[in-house]
Amino acid sequence: MFFDSWMGIVRVLVVGTIAYVALVLLLRTSGKRTLAKLNAFDFIVTVALGSTLATVLLSSTVALAEGVTALVLLVGLQYVVAWASMRSRRVERLVKSEPQMLYRDGFLREAMRRARVTEDELRQAARGQGHADLEGVSAIVLETDGTLSFLTSQPRSLLSGDDG
Score class of each variant (00 low, 15 high):
residue 1 M to W: 09
residue 1 M to S: 14
residue 1 M to P: 12
residue 2 F to Y: 13
residue 3 F to T: 08
residue 3 F to E: 07
residue 6 W to F: 11
residue 6 W to M: 05
residue 7 M to H: 13
residue 8 G to M: 09
residue 8 G to S: 06
residue 8 G to E: 12
residue 13 L to M: 15
residue 16 G to D: 06
residue 18 I to S: 02
residue 20 Y to F: 12
residue 22 A to R: 02
residue 23 L to M: 08
residue 25 L to M: 12
residue 25 L to V: 10
residue 26 L to Y: 04
residue 31 G to N: 07
residue 33 R to S: 12
residue 33 R to D: 08
residue 33 R to G: 11
residue 33 R to Y: 07
residue 34 T to I: 15
residue 35 L to A: 03
residue 36 A to F: 01
residue 36 A to H: 02
residue 38 L to Y: 03
residue 39 N to K: 00
residue 40 A to D: 05
residue 40 A to N: 09
residue 40 A to T: 11
residue 41 F to I: 05
residue 42 D to I: 06
residue 42 D to T: 08
residue 42 D to R: 00
residue 43 F to Y: 14
residue 43 F to M: 12
residue 44 I to L: 15
residue 50 G to M: 01
residue 51 S to L: 09
residue 52 T to F: 00
residue 53 L to P: 04
residue 54 A to M: 12
residue 54 A to W: 02
residue 57 L to Q: 04
residue 57 L to I: 15
residue 58 L to V: 13
residue 60 S to G: 12
residue 60 S to K: 09
residue 64 L to D: 09
residue 64 L to V: 12
residue 65 A to L: 14
residue 66 E to W: 06
residue 68 V to S: 09
residue 68 V to T: 10
residue 69 T to S: 15
residue 69 T to M: 14
residue 69 T to N: 10
residue 70 A to C: 14
residue 70 A to Y: 06
residue 71 L to G: 00
residue 71 L to W: 01
residue 72 V to Q: 05
residue 75 V to F: 03
residue 75 V to T: 09
residue 75 V to Y: 05
residue 77 L to P: 06
residue 80 V to H: 06
residue 81 V to D: 05
residue 82 A to N: 15
residue 82 A to P: 00
residue 83 W to S: 13
residue 84 A to R: 00
residue 84 A to C: 14
residue 84 A to I: 06
residue 84 A to T: 12
residue 84 A to E: 08
residue 85 S to I: 02
residue 88 S to K: 03
residue 89 R to K: 14
residue 89 R to G: 11
residue 90 R to F: 14
residue 91 V to Y: 06
residue 91 V to A: 14
residue 92 E to M: 10
residue 93 R to M: 13
residue 93 R to H: 14
residue 94 L to E: 07
residue 95 V to E: 04
residue 95 V to G: 04
residue 97 S to R: 11
residue 98 E to V: 14
residue 98 E to F: 10
residue 99 P to F: 09
residue 99 P to Y: 06
residue 100 Q to P: 00
residue 101 M to R: 07
residue 103 Y to A: 04
residue 106 G to H: 08
residue 107 F to L: 05
residue 108 L to I: 15
residue 109 R to F: 10
residue 111 A to I: 01
residue 112 M to G: 05
residue 114 R to G: 11
residue 114 R to F: 06
residue 114 R to K: 13
residue 117 V to E: 05
residue 120 D to R: 03
residue 123 R to W: 06
residue 125 A to D: 07
residue 126 A to E: 01
residue 129 Q to H: 13
residue 131 H to M: 10
residue 131 H to S: 05
residue 131 H to G: 02
residue 132 A to F: 08
residue 132 A to D: 12
residue 135 E to H: 09
residue 136 G to A: 11
residue 138 S to E: 15
residue 138 S to V: 10
residue 141 V to Y: 02
residue 144 T to C: 01
residue 146 G to C: 09
residue 146 G to I: 00
residue 147 T to F: 05
residue 147 T to P: 01
residue 148 L to C: 04
residue 152 T to P: 00
residue 153 S to P: 06
residue 153 S to V: 11
residue 154 Q to R: 08
residue 156 R to F: 13
residue 156 R to T: 12
residue 158 L to D: 13
residue 158 L to I: 08
residue 164 G to L: 14
